[in-house]
Amino acid sequence: MSREKTKRNRLQSVSIPTEIIFHIIVGGFALACIIPFIFVIIISFSSEESIRLIGYSFKPLKWSTEAYGFVLQMGSQLWRSYFNSFLVSIVGTVTSVLMCILYAYALFRRDFKYRKFFMFFAFFTMLFGGGLAPTYMVCKQMLGLSDNYAALIVPALVNPFFIIIMRTFLQTSVPEELIEAAAIDGSGEYNTLFRIIIPISKPGIATVSLLTMINYWNDWFLTMLYVRDSSKFPLQYLLMKVQNQVDFLIKNSSVIGVEASKILQDLPGTSLRMSLVVFIVVPIACAYPFFQRYIISGLTIGSVKG
């Protein structure tokens, strides 16, 4: 087994014309991915009047920073929610990924006696669940997940999909001989996992961490179900609260009557909702390179540490 570091160079890469084609395809797609976000930014800077007159457009009649002013005016609630989002995302991700690795590692070990059982045990819950009401009752009444941070973290701790993905990462990146070698050295299971496996599985761990973190960051449903205390609202919920109100009133406007349109007029306009999207996306986009380092940089310096 070669343990020397190798550097990629031009000779080992694809030819230049091929790479140009790659740039066009992938770059083009990447561009397409970002355009709607630019659209969101444009709407967030459009004046409400412009939206009223010509709808959502790349070229608003009038620009305005009103929406951002309004969001910043929320002051303490906004920063509080930022804090909550970070807290929940970080604590949630660390705990969740740790649990995920432990479970996935055991499933990865082919000499684990109950491997198949536990694989099935996790997989089965991906498909079947008791539905919202029973889960809600168990969380709230049995586990006391109500109006506390735990309510925002615990119900999303385990995602069987990530466990299965993590196991597959381990299967692709950890050579069998490594485990055997460790066993001969008399290394305990926890030691093997933390000293040997984790360091060489960084791309997989970083990926699962990233996805888990995004799940926590994007979540608003748990807040809606379990938390009523606004000092514990994460950022995403602030946005969804408004969005859900608007959706509901629109759906029921013909039944609620005059009042619905009155209330709708008092709710924050589209530009405000879009500026909240910007507030939500920017921090996580900034956290992104941290994970990406492990997902992509491993490409340049191919190394297997023993």
């Binding site: 649990m99 995920c100 432990l102 479970y103 590692y105 055991a106 499933l107 109950y114 536990f118 045990f121 996790a122 819950t125 079947f128 669940g129 008791g130 539905g131 009401a133 029973p134 889960t135 009752m137 168990v138 969380c139 049995m142 586990l143 615990v154 119900p155 701790l157 385990v158 069987p160 466990i163 299971e189 926890y190 996992l193």
Partner: peptide, 20 residues
């Protein structure tokens, strides 16, 4: 190693499953 996840699954997935 599997215990934490397994306990979570029992509490938050398998018990509510009775609701099926």
């Amino acid at each position: 190693m599997v215990a934490p996840v397994a306990i979570w699954l029992i509490l938050l997935r398998y018990i509510p499953m009775a609701g099926i």
